[in-house]
Simulated assay, not measured.
Amino acid sequence: MSVVKMLLTDSLLSSVPEPIKRINDTKLSGFHARVGKTQNDKKRKIALYLNYRFGGIKGKQRNYHLGYFGECDLKDVRKEVESLKGRVALGEDVYETKQLSLKQQFIEDTSPTVEELAQEFIERDIKVNRKDVDPVMRMFKKDILPFIGNYKLKEITRRDILNKVLDPIKDRGSNTQANKTLSILKQMFDFGVERDLMQGNPVSTVKKKSVGALKSREPEH
């Protein structure tokens, strides 16, 4: 006997006989428990799932992981199953929704900051392709990193860069420096896109005239 059909309860799952590997709930179709082997603490790890088919008879078979018995309240799990089944009935592939959410969360958790991108950009591009790196280093140290260095690449916007970096440079009368900074930022964010660290360059469409016209004799600040 490895698969049985019984009402999933706390008392049942607290002491599942060794031969049982899976218990299908009698009340909610698709809701089931997968029972692992007895561990050193003499308990069996029990995973809770919702099994459903999405897209008709020939559709995809899904196993939606709900959690582990003992780590979540069984009553709450039942409510979640009812909600999930309702969403599936309305045409939502809840398994796919969850996978996309987990992927997005992973991206958010691991998204580097502007400062981390800048360090890699300087090491792998600026120091490799430029003879004089000091002006660029000063640019990052003075006008860029103090203001947007802590921003994650996933959240930095064109407006953030304009308001916090480029506009202040322009406001102090350094139009030439503002445009040089814009140029470096475009290069850096393009580098980030090429390295698959971000989806797009937030300043790719910003024009020099939006920052300030170049003046060949204008002193840098």
Rank of each mutant, 00 (worst) to 15 (best):
D132I: 03
K208N: 15
I23H: 03
L166A: 00
E115S: 07
N51E: 15
R62E: 11
E194M: 03
Q99K: 13
V133G: 00
A118W: 00
L153H: 04
Q99G: 09
K208M: 13
R130W: 00
K142G: 00
Q105N: 10
K58T: 03
Y68W: 03
D109L: 11
I57N: 06
G59H: 00
I184V: 13
G30H: 09
D171L: 05
E96H: 11
R62K: 15
K98N: 15
N163D: 15
I169Q: 02
V165A: 00
I126C: 04
K27M: 14
L214Q: 12
P19F: 10
A33E: 08
K75G: 15
M198G: 12
G149N: 13
Y151H: 12
K103M: 07
V77I: 12
T113W: 12
L84F: 13
S29V: 06
V4G: 05
E71L: 03
K164R: 07
D76G: 11
K141V: 03
V94H: 10
R62H: 14
Y68F: 05
P202G: 13
N24V: 06
E80F: 02
Q199M: 10
M139W: 02
L197C: 01
P219R: 07
D160W: 08
V206H: 06
T205Q: 08
Q177F: 12
A213T: 15
K164L: 15
V128S: 04
R158F: 02
M6Y: 01
V133T: 04
